[in-house]
Design a protein around this nucleic acid. Structure first.
Length: 548
DNA sequence: CAGGATGCAA
DNA sequence: ATGAATGCATCCTG
């Protein structure tokens, strides 16, 4: 028996003792094949999931490496059944393959006749198939390439897609390096995508995902369709591409609500693609408007369901998804895996921090205690009012004021979800507030004043989740968040991670009501960051107030 | 036809 | 189970 930091249980959960001296290296070793499930103070729970194992497999890890990692960090003997299961699950990926043949077009082949027989019996699969092509292969209708991958994943037999890609229409795209250079991880990410053919690149906020996209375009040398979440992001992409590549103004088109340009490089919003009229999608022709050689999905964790359906028909095009957090709250990770592709690259946030690409950050959860009256009101509140009630308790205002005073001289963002709460905070802090109804001009004015340090404190609503031009701060105080959204928490922390001129660190406070669902949701939101190695120090609001 | 206001969807 | 922000389409003005 070793003194390892990990307890491996036969239900496929892994318990990591956080204070153990080998906890960090262990976290790094298990991250490729285990997902963090719970992250309270002392023991973090990970789960070994099939999807994580298949991502690991697609990234070139084999079962032996996974088994080695488990055994070498485990405190107790690892359940044999689990090791067998890991090996069995990993071997499922790639047992089936999609290939392209001259004679039969797209075919599904197998190295294992029994597996092929099993999936051929599926009622879901049968309509997608053509004639049997010998003992170990069957023809697949080319238009079903995406659908069959989704269906096979659901059956537990994810296919490796080796059917290749069309080149698309040639278009010269060079990186305009000179005043800047591609960072090593950006190059690695673009190369990993290119060699994998299609798939997802995961990088922290502010790590330059657009530049990875540009590098992917330089690989493809082809017309490119870029899908983004909003128009601000569309403009950002265009500016960045003009700056970083040989592309000129008239080569980049914008396909949004107000403009419908189709150019060799076209940037479209998800929404324009998913708006329907009389039950049919209006702008589907954009996908066929050109012979696109590459499709880039920005913020792939937000990909709306209809885009998945459209992507099922785009399987012969190279596809790259970019994201900071591959986790989705709707559990459609499997569709990202089948339709965009496996994870091709990910850079752990903490490693980026060590290399100085992002600022080190301390995360602090500040717990406020409800007064007896509030406790009673909370207990009596309707289910739909409860979260709002505990998330917006007046005690949070006082501790937020104290935190702002503590950081006098720093640039501080106060972020929350309820407008009433934000208005009140802005009032108390004597700070301006930016919310949905704030006009663009006014927002820009306030952002600029914040950048110029004329304003030290800015109160922002959910606009902060989207707007890219929001200036970086060194302190963020979150007073309420969207239920349990992990990706929102990551975005918000990302706001303070831009490296500081003085090399100093950043601080992220999450103000939470003790013993309420606010605390539960906060714990859920923190999971993704805990997985990235960010530990939340928990302090009492009374201590903050007392220290003044 | 640019730019603003309004309703609606997911 | 929810609240807030957004983007699109449409209509309107000059």
């Amino acid at each position: 028996m070793s003194d390892g930091p990990l307890i491996v249980q036969s239900d496929k959960t892994l318990l990591l003792e956080v204070e153990h001296e080998r906890a960090d290296e262990c976290r790094k070793a298990i991250a490729p094949f285990a997902e963090l499930e719970r992250a309270p103070e002392h023991v973090h729970t990970y789960r070994v999931t099939p999807l994580a194992l298949w991502n690991a497999r697609a990234a070139g890890h084999d079962a032996e490496q996974v088994v080695d990692a488990l055994i070498s960090y485990s405190r107790y003997p690892v359940p044999h059944a689990l090791l067998v299961d890991v090996a069995e699950t990993m071997s499922r990926y790639g047992r089936l393959r999609l290939e392209k043949t001259d004679l039969y077009g797209l075919i599904l082949t197998s190295t294992d006749r029994a597996v092929l027989a099993e999936v051929l019996r599926s009622k879901k699969i049968q309509p997608m198939l053509g004639e049997r092509v010998g003992e170990d292969a069957v023809a697949v209708h080319p238009s079903e390439r995406g659908n069959i991958k989704q269906a096979l994943l659901k059956l537990g037999w994810p296919a490796e897609d080796l059917a290749g890609y069309v080149d698309g229409e040639y278009h010269s795209i060079e990186l305009a390096e000179g005043t800047w250079t591609l960072r090593p991880y950006q190059r690695e990410a673009a190369d990993a995508f290119w060699h994998g053919g299609s798939g997802v690149v995961v990088l922290p906020c502010g790590a330059g995902k657009t530049i990875v996209g540009a590098a992917a375009m330089a690989h493809a040398q082809a017309t490119t369709l870029i899908l983004v979440t909003n128009t601000v992001s569309a403009h950002q992409w265009k500016q960045e591409l003009l700056k970083r590549t040989s592309l000129t103004e008239d080569e980049i088109g914008e396909y949004t609500g107000s403009k419908k340009e189709i150019r060799p490089v076209t940037i479209a919003t998800y929404q324009v693609m998913t708006t329907k009229r009389q039950g049919t999608y209006r702008h589907l022709e954009l996908f066929d408007a050109r012979d696109w050689g590459l499709v880039i999905y920005d913020e792939v964790h937000l990909l709306p369901a209809p885009i998945f359906r459209m992507t099922a028909d785009l399987q012969a095009r190279r596809r790259v998804g970019l994201t900071a957090t591959l986790v989705r709250e709707d559990g459609r990770e499997g569709d990202v895996f089948s339709l965009i592709g496996p994870k091709r690259y990910d850079a752990p946030w903490k490693e980026m921090e060590n290399q100085g690409w992002i600022a080190p950050a301390d995360c602090v959860e500040v717990r406020v205690t409800l007064t007896d009256d509030e406790r009673l009101a909370y207990a009596m509140a309707d289910a739909e009012e409860r979260y709002r009630f505990c998330a917006t308790t007046p005690s949070k205002t006082r501790v937020t004021e104290a935190l702002v005073r503590r950081h006098a001289g720093d640039q501080v963002l106060v972020i929350g979800q309820y407008i009433d709460q934000l208005d009140e905070l802005a009032d108390h802090l004597n700070a301006p507030v930016i919310k949905g109804e704030t006009r663009i001009k006014e927002r820009e004015r306030l952002y600029q004043a914040f950048r110029d340090k004329e304003i030290q404190v800015l109160v922002v609503s959910k606009v902060a989740n989207f707007s890219i031009d929001l200036p970086e701060a060194s302190v963020a105080i979150q007073v309420s968040g969207t239920f349990g959204s992990r990706q929102e928490e990551a975005q918000r922390l990302g706001r303070v991670l831009r490296p500081k001129a003085d090399g100093g660190g950043a601080r992220f406070y999450s103000v939470v009501s003790r013993d309420t669902i606010d605390q539960d949701f906060a714990a859920h939101r923190q999971r993704f960051l805990a997985e990235q190695g960010y530990a939340y120090e928990i302090i009492d609001a009374d201590d903050v107030l007392a220290s003044e």
